[in-house]
């Protein structure tokens, strides 16, 4: 059964191999070459760090993504562990609500942020009613943060809940039998057990935020996150080499984030993306 099956396995793999070679590997290689085809040659890749506009865009994207990641992981850890460890009526509904926006596209999320914090948004109305002052932050960094947080929470919560489900309650009981306080249990038992899931889901949130385009596009802010910079360079400035180089840098950062998280956290957890 073993010996004669190689050709068949290769046959089964062939279609995907052809599609990937033709439409992914080849184009990616070409993108790398084009990134080095501008007047600066391959030093275009380094010029990102010298061109203030690009560098600022890179830094603000990384900072924004990092902030979103931290906030999403903390919020999701609290709610995820709470929902996994308590049974009460309505729990299933809450879980559904929290994971519902999982597959919303960025544009829709951008629009929802406008609904929440735009000129005719809920936040503004409440603020006007309560204090009489305007509150519009949809088109600022805070708006982007809100949007990114919105699409990060469902992803992170799913991973954390899956990990919390596997938590052995006996560990916690053992810690308490040894006299550990509630906080000590969280610090010494729960958090270490959740660590791989926290790292993995955090990396996914970070990578998604780094590459997010639709939300920023809809909010049409003046904040240049990297995907917006790439888009502008490509479509408005027709600066293909720069756009290509920036895309490759962006892709490398997101891939690295996921790769590093996986080597720290182990490979199995990240699958829930």
């Amino acid at each position: 059964m073993k010996h004669s099956e190689y050709p068949r396995l290769i046959l089964l793999m062939l279609p995907v191999a052809i599609v990937f070679l033709a439409f992914f590997l080849l184009p990616m290689a070409r993108l790398i070459l084009i990134g080095g085809s501008g007047e600066n040659g391959f030093s275009e890749y380094l010029s990102i760090f010298h061109t203030p506009r690009h560098f600022e865009s890179l830094v603000s994207t990384v900072l924004l993504s990092a902030a979103v990641t931290i906030a999403a992981v903390i919020i999701s850890a609290v709610t995820g562990v709470f929902l996994e460890r308590n049974r009460f009526p309505g729990r299933e509904v809450l879980i559904s609500m929290l994971t519902f926006p999982l597959a919303f596209p960025g544009v829709v999320i951008g629009f929802l942020v406008i609904m929440l914090a735009g000129r005719q948004g809920l936040a503004n109305e409440i603020s006007q009613a309560l204090t009489g002052s305007r509150l519009v932050f949809a088109y600022s960094m805070a708006g982007l943060f809100t949007g990114y947080l919105y699409f990060s929470i469902p992803r992170v919560i799913l991973t954390i809940m899956a990990a919390a489900e596997k938590l052995d309650p006996a560990l916690e009981e053992a810690a308490r039998s040894l006299g550990a306080s509630r906080w000590q249990v969280i610090r010494d038992v729960i958090l270490p057990a959740l660590k791989p899931a926290l790292i993995a889901s955090g990396a996914i949130a970070f990578a998604t935020a780094m590459g997010a385009f639709g939300t920023a596009f809809t909010l049409a802010t003046n904040i240049d996150v990297l995907p917006m910079t790439i888009y502008t360079e490509f479509t408005l400035n027709a600066n293909f080499a720069t756009a290509a180089a920036l895309s490759i840098v962006l892709g490398t950062i997101t891939w690295l984030a996921l790769y590093i998280s996986r080597s720290i956290a182990g490979s199995t957890v990240a699958a829930a993306a």
Partner: peptide, 19 residues
Amino acid sequence: LVLPIAIPGLAIALALIVT
């Protein structure tokens, strides 16, 4: 095969367009 998850759609789209 799972690389397209890690690489932003924008980059993949650009690669397809330039090729």
